[in-house]
Amino acid sequence: MSVSEPHAAVAALLKPGAHGATGGQPVRLAVRDVDIVQLLARKGRAEDAAAAIKAAYGFDLPSPGRSAGGDALAALWVQPDGWFLIAPRGAEGALARAVKAAVGDAGSVIDQTHGRSVITLSGARATWVLAKECRVDLHPAAFGPGRVASTQIAHLACTIHQRDAAPTYDLIVFTTFAKSFMESLTHAAEETGYVVS
């Protein structure tokens, strides 16, 4: 796995290979090498910020509990008038500068690339593993592709983003807590087995 700073230290917590139970349907674990930017619309400027993002990137900022965009640039709702913007890792600070240039004084932009890490959990039994860890209803009737929820996992703040129906989940956690988070997640995944590639 080739992961750049600052996510290499988190990726190093996962050892390549198969772990845990064998013979079932193992889940897959990986660390995504991404830039993460937080966008907060300034007071009364949410519509201006949304219009600016639409003009620059071609999609509407998502409503509560949802995501928008795609793998090139995804927007996740995290709080009223607040979103995460996530893109593949590029030049240091480039995404934050581009988003700030797009929204101008309609929003505040904070680069969270070093502060947050994104751990991907996928596979047919990923929901089963994640359900052991969190209190959010992940049943397809209540959750699904394009849905986002901020909650606690192992007493740590975590934002869950379901990216597709495989299912694939992005788990966004504070980098400084990523080691404890990973210990809990890999422990939960031992029951199905997990593969790190």
């Binding site: 509560p64 509990g65 009223p80 209190r135 909650t151 606690q152």
Partner: peptide, 11 residues
Amino acid sequence: PWCGMRDEAEF
């Protein structure tokens, strides 16, 4: 009103 039904542990 924003996130839907959640347990008190989140609050």
